[in-house]
Computed example of a mutant assay.
Amino acid sequence: MNKPAPAPRTAYRHFLPITTRWMDNDVYGHVNNVVYYSYFDTVVNEYLIRAGVLDVEHGATIGLVVETQCNYFAPLVFPERVEAGLRVVRLGSTSVRYEVGLFKDGEAQPAAQGHFVHVYVDRATRRPVALPRELRAALELLVVDADAA
């Protein structure tokens, strides 16, 4: 398996500062790998909520994660501030591929980068649905050509 080259900070459209917590570190002295996925969830959902396109309690359409991956390039540790960069590299009719870069405060290259894919479904039936117009518009602001970035 080939590890992808890290995408620089300039390849991302939206950023969220995240403060690491003492409990994020593991016994090896760095942020545990499962916490990185929590950071991914945090930046995506923060963006969607602030854009007004995600109602976590009552929204008729919800995103279910169907695929995830993370590549690690350098350790993150408490008490560092992390800046999570967000972009969309594929916007389908019912799904979205988000990519996230986790940067040490002010660094140009990510300590880690990864992706997850949301399939948007009806909350009640859990069957795929077309992306609502408002959601698509908010996501289009994040779209980049990953090959050109």
Rank of each mutant, 00 (worst) to 15 (best):
V117M: 07
E80T: 12
A51F: 03
A74K: 11
A5Y: 02
A124I: 14
D55Y: 01
L91Y: 03
V88D: 00
T125A: 13
F15I: 14
L76Y: 00
R87N: 01
A130R: 12
A7G: 03
F15E: 11
H115Y: 11
A111L: 08
S93F: 06
H14R: 12
A5W: 01
I18F: 01
D55C: 08
T42Y: 01
T20N: 04
V121C: 10
E140D: 07
I49C: 05
E46T: 15
V89K: 04
P17I: 12
G92S: 11
I62Y: 02
R13D: 03
Q69C: 15
R123Y: 05
A148G: 10
A7K: 01
F73P: 03
V88T: 03
V56Q: 14
A84V: 02
V56D: 11
V89C: 05
F116R: 05
V121N: 02
N25P: 02
D41N: 10
A138S: 04
H30Q: 05
Q113A: 10
Q113Y: 02
Y36F: 13
L86A: 12
V143F: 00
V82W: 00
T19D: 14
V53Q: 02
L16P: 00
A7Q: 03
R136H: 01
E99P: 05
K3Q: 12
D147P: 03
E107Y: 06
L135W: 01
G59H: 04
S93R: 15
T94A: 15
P79C: 12
R123T: 11
Y36I: 14
V31L: 05
A111Y: 00
H58K: 14
T19A: 15
V65Q: 03
F40T: 13
Q69N: 15
D122V: 13
S95Y: 01
A7R: 00
V96K: 04
P8M: 13
E99T: 14
V66D: 06
N45Q: 09
S95W: 00
V129P: 00
P132W: 06
E67Q: 13
Y39H: 07
F40W: 02
Y36W: 05
Y98N: 05
A111D: 03
Q69G: 15
V117A: 08
K3C: 08
M1Y: 06
V31Q: 03
H58M: 07
V27K: 14
L142K: 01
Y36T: 13
F78A: 10
R9Y: 01
G59I: 09
R97T: 13
S95H: 05
G29P: 00
D122L: 14
W22H: 07
A148V: 12
R123S: 07
D122I: 14
Y36M: 09
S38C: 07
Y36S: 11
Y12Q: 10
T10N: 07
D147R: 14
E107Q: 15
A146I: 10
Y47M: 10
E134D: 11
N45K: 06
V77Y: 05
